[in-house]
Design a protein around this nucleic acid. Sequence first.
DNA 1: CGATCTTTTGAAAGAGGTCAATTGAAGTGG
DNA 2: CCACTTCAATTGACCTCTTTCAAAAGATCG
Lengths: 222, 222
Amino acid sequence: MLARTHENTHQCPSSSELNALAGHNVFCSEFKYRRGTVIFGETEPVEYLYQVKSGAVRSYKLLPDGRRQVISFHLPGDIFGVENGADHRFTTEAITDTTVRLTKRRNVVDEHGSRATATNNLVRLVTSNLQHAEEHMLLLGRKTALEKVAAFLLEMDNRLAATGVVVLPMRRRDIADYLGLTVETVARVMTHLRNQNVLIFIGPANREIVLRDRAKLAEFAS
Amino acid sequence: MLARTHENTHQCPSSSELNALAGHNVFCSEFKYRRGTVIFGETEPVEYLYQVKSGAVRSYKLLPDGRRQVISFHLPGDIFGVENGADHRFTTEAITDTTVRLTKRRNVVDEHGSRATATNNLVRLVTSNLQHAEEHMLLLGRKTALEKVAAFLLEMDNRLAATGVVVLPMRRRDIADYLGLTVETVARVMTHLRNQNVLIFIGPANREIVLRDRAKLAEFAS
DNA sequence: CGATCTTTTGAAAGAGGTCAATTGAAGTGG
DNA sequence: CCACTTCAATTGACCTCTTTCAAAAGATCG
């Protein structure tokens, strides 16, 4: 949050969904984060809204002893950093080198309730986050490791607008913390799915995956 | 949703938080649900907003094989049934005999974006649901049985505006499905906490609980 | 008061976690 | 360009927390 200078500031392309959210053109800037760097921290004041232009982002919460729960992944096109209160409720980091568009929060969230379009779009956005959270609670509370990993792969397949290959931007630890599992269990389930001919690994770190049998995967996902 | 007749319709007391939500007085009715009855089902169209007057309500999702995840409990004063889309995303049932106030959704959610106050209040409401969901994901994904039960008891203690005794309206199965555990595990942890002198059971079905040591409970809750 | 539901308790089993070692990929600096 | 270090992913052996299965005691209700 320190080195965000005016060098990076310029008019956003008019196609930006941030403009759609605000209901009018907003003057915003672009910013790059290196892999692993913090975009904003828990309890930091909300100053900006973000949209992923390229790369990938994780939002997570921590327990005092370091156990981590990834709340969501943000992929290109996704808007994040929306809060109603004054402070953020979790930490957000770049998973890979990431470029985001950002705009001052007050451009979108109007204190005096006059920007009706913006506020309506905001409701829609927060609601879709809530919907995702509800689905994820079902997964965390009631699904087995196999079901969790299958559901995760299908989610990524959908959201990454697949070219036939799912290229995961996150490491196994991120996946594990998203699914409420350990890295070892994630790896074991992945191997199991590969042995069942449901997946094919093609990348070097097994991050590039072909979903050979989406039907069976959907069955597994429950 | 069937027997909701005009017999039940009358002006709400002006103190109703539904009025506050709408930003103006809304004509609404009161309705009673018997213990165990469905208030609305998954995929049903959204027609009303609800506020618990007395009793308690559970919202949950089901997997095809019957596994259940309770998303949230609604206690007196709580507003529920808020959705952005046309359909509900989960099933909602009365846990005990419950009285709710209700108002037509269109009284609050304005399609044309003119009622700015209402929409702003709506954002706040949806956001607080999202905040709760995020906390709950951390619990479901990363906490142990002991931590889950301790956190649950403290949550209920806060939300039930305790007179010193927490009177749980829900059964052990509801608690288990909320925490992602089995009834047996919930019972065992409760017994353990009683043996540690953290809790005292006073009711007949162990539903009335004195939190003898909130500090230790908070420690356990992590 | 008999039938049904809820809660508790015990014993056994299992799914996933922990610990440890190996392999492979990715940087880094000489 | 190549040792050297570090990080990521996998695999195996073992362990434990929670679940499963079963039974009994306690409420609740018609």
